[in-house]
Design a protein around this nucleic acid. Structure first.
Lengths: 183, 183
DNA sequence: ACTTAACATGTAATTATTTACATGTTATAA
DNA sequence: TTATAACATGTAAATAATTACATGTTAAGT
């Protein structure tokens, strides 16, 4: 069975909103949608090349400044059709969870293990930082009233990510208090 | 920089509890700890081979029945040292999130898109099924009183997984009700 | 007796992802 | 003016993960 290649659909989804260059897509993965999808530029550029070969997008070089070229890609009708197909078809099966924190807890079966306390502290810090970041993103994007309606989908998934971090933190703090090894 | 290879530590963690064969590890990934880590047998067997080469484990063939051989691996002191090192060192940086559901929502920016309702219904069903499964696991493992103390770490992470699904479902249902496209 | 599922172990091929290599431009701040 | 960060695009090499190929045993049900 052929592979999923969700990256292809994600890039096409972005290009269905507006033409973008590889670098713009990279930037989107580092900011805007970085909490939901990510790829390195070394995966993006070749994928753009393949999609142009396949006729889903067309690239046109633009000159920025005096020499620097920026290759913007525009989605074609067949590309648009492909995104729509993807959006309509059911979700692919969940990728297996790989949770290093959970595995460490699992192996520290002794409950009195002092490492367990440190592990929880680290995980809590991690989620606190992520939550802070996501909440600052919300402020930047949707602080003005009404801006949520303009970007309904974006607001929805950011809300979900924030909620996820909050819930996760709540559990971590609660479980942390119950640790017997806690000083 | 060298790669992470967390699979190695996970396998060593399992072998630090008791000797196991590749097949037993595969079964653990399909049941017991499948909600926290997974690898295909085609990744497990070669990794076991490499770890034996590196002196972290030692394999010994056992004969099951009359002909069938089962190669059980025992952890060596250097293997034990490696797991302990991993348990003590801080968590590796979070792998990037790749959330197909979120991306689809993001691209369905229109809020009235009828596909959005179907998407949420599918995602809700998915999480309901997972929650059911996890709760049945809890019953099987920890229904008898006191059994939680024997497997502290296991109980803790299973609790976390259940909590995660519950919270996620709560948000999904809440957001679903707010969808304008909902009939 | 026969079929099927589960036990058991491997390798090969492909795809996905990360890290490193490689090169050049442009804006900004010291 | 000069260093530095950000812009911009690629390729190569390595690792990680999935899917497919390949083979044989044993228990349990029909």
């Amino acid at each position: 069975m052929a592979q999923k290649n969700t990256l292809r659909y994600v890039i096409l989804g972005l290009l269905s909103k507006e033409p973008m260059a590889g670098y713009d897509i990279k930037k989107a993965f580092e900011g805007e949608i970085g909490d939901f999808w990510y790829s390195n530029h070394s995966q993006i550029y070749p994928e753009l090349g393949r999609m142009e070969q396949d006729g889903f997008i067309i690239g046109h070089e633009e000159i920025v400044g005096s020499k620097l070229t920026k290759k913007k890609y525009t989605i074609t009708p067949s590309g648009k059709a492909l995104v729509d197909e993807w959006l309509a078809e059911s979700l692919s099966s969940l990728p297996p969870t790989r949770d290093e924190f959970a595995m460490k807890v699992y192996f520290m079966d002794s409950a009195e293990d002092p490492l367990l306390v440190a592990l929880f502290q680290e995980e809590i810090l991690r989620h606190e930082e992520k939550l802070d970041y996501l909440q600052s993103r919300w402020k930047v994007l949707f602080s003005e009233a009404g801006s949520e309606q303009d970007h309904f989908g974006h607001a929805l998934i950011l809300e979900r990510a924030i909620r996820r971090e909050k819930d996760q933190l709540a559990w971590l703090r609660e479980a942390y208090k119950r640790l017997p090894g806690k000083k």
